[in-house]
């Protein structure tokens, strides 16, 4: 059994999102004989080399052929296996969008799709390897659970939890290697249930993925200005924790959404839809990528250019207050 202790949490953070994915894969292989790992020429990159040594007959490498990989995964799922499928987030969503739509969404086949380097994590490779629209696409597909974990510990919990459900699932991995740690110790993770990281009175930052950590940093900066913040980890984008959003609305003057994603179609849209449907007119400040393609650049550079660093977030929030 995997142990969520401080030492492991530090190690997973050093390994980064792919390493965490590989750690979850080993745990799943040891506990569930039906779990299989599928990749498209990214065995090493996705953190599966240890899995490959330990369980060589449970790893399928489909080469650089993502469309076929999704179809084959659907075939395996139909026959009772649990295929956990990875490639770059852009390639496992938009690249093979129709395969995802027909097999996972329409047919509800329980493929567990892992989108590597979502957001800007592969930003030095340019816009082809970034993925800032995957939430919008995946969220629009019926029947698919969409998860965006906040750190490496949550990645492990999400991958393991997804394999235990009968639902097709997309898990988007954000953040660089040496991933900032949100959870220093074990906690309760449930798909569809947001987690309150800290409670405040003025502002609620509803954050997802890598932005949960940045929201925590932002909250610290705002505290020095006398503004107290709640930080809500909205790790599941679909089904959305509507109750948590409603509660946040009741308790705060301002809601902020924070996502390493286009502000169109992702968390901001999802939260706004909930409020709008409820006839609620609370302003929501969107922190995200403002509908543009970034050129290649380092992760910290991209985050600053898009206004996703804590200092820039702080300024935006103060302006809005």
């Amino acid at each position: 059994m995997i142990e969520y202790n401080k030492r492991n949490i530090r190690t997973w953070s050093l390994l980064g999102p792919s390493g965490a994915h590989g750690t979850a894969a080993i745990e799943l292989a040891e506990t569930n004989p039906n779990v299989l790992m599928l990749t498209a020429d990214l065995c090493f990159f996705s953190g599966l080399e240890r899995f490959k040594s330990a369980f060589p007959d449970r790893l399928y490498n489909f080469g650089i052929a993502e469309q076929n990989m999704i179809g084959a995964a659907a075939g395996l799922a139909k026959e009772g296996f649990i295929p956990v499928v990875n490639t770059y987030a852009s390639f496992c969503t938009s690249r093979c969008a129709d395969q995802v739509r027909v097999n996972m969404s329409y047919m509800k086949l329980p493929v567990k799709l892992i989108g590597l380097t979502a957001g800007y994590a592969a930003g030095v490779l340019g816009a082809t390897h970034m993925s800032v629209e995957d939430l919008a696409f995946m969220r629009a597909l019926p029947n698919i659970t969409v998860i965006s974990p906040a750190d490496c510990t949550e990645i492990i919990k999400a991958v393991i939890a997804s394999a235990e459900t009968p639902d097709p699932t997309y898990i988007r991995l954000t953040g660089p290697q040496n991933t900032p740690i949100v959870y220093k110790e074990d906690y309760d993770f449930q798909i569809g249930k947001a987690v309150t990281i800290q409670e405040g009175e003025d502002v609620c930052i509803i954050a997802t993925g890598s932005m949960v950590y940045h929201a925590m940093q932002t909250a610290k900066l705002l505290e020095t200005e006398g503004i107290s913040c709640t930080v809500l980890n909205m790790h599941t984008i679909k089904p959305l924790d509507v109750d948590a959003i409603m509660e946040a609305n009741e308790k705060h003057k301002l809601l902020v959404t924070a996502e390493e994603h286009n502000i169109i179609g992702g968390l901001y849209s999802a939260v706004s839809e909930v409020l709008c449907r409820g006839g609620i007119h609370t302003p929501v400040l969107p922190i995200g990528i403002n509908d543009f393609f970034a050129h290649s650049g380092s992760y910290p550079y991209q985050m600053r250019e898009s206004g996703l660093s804590a200092d820039l977030m702080k300024e935006e929030i103060i302006k809005k207050l």
Binding site: A72, L76, E79, D98, V102, N103
Partner: peptide, 14 residues
């Protein structure tokens, strides 16, 4: 263009 991939996955499962 999708059925043959489903066949591949099904055969791997068999």
């Amino acid at each position: 263009g999708q059925g043959l991939s489903l066949g591949v996955g099904t055969c791997l499962a068999l």
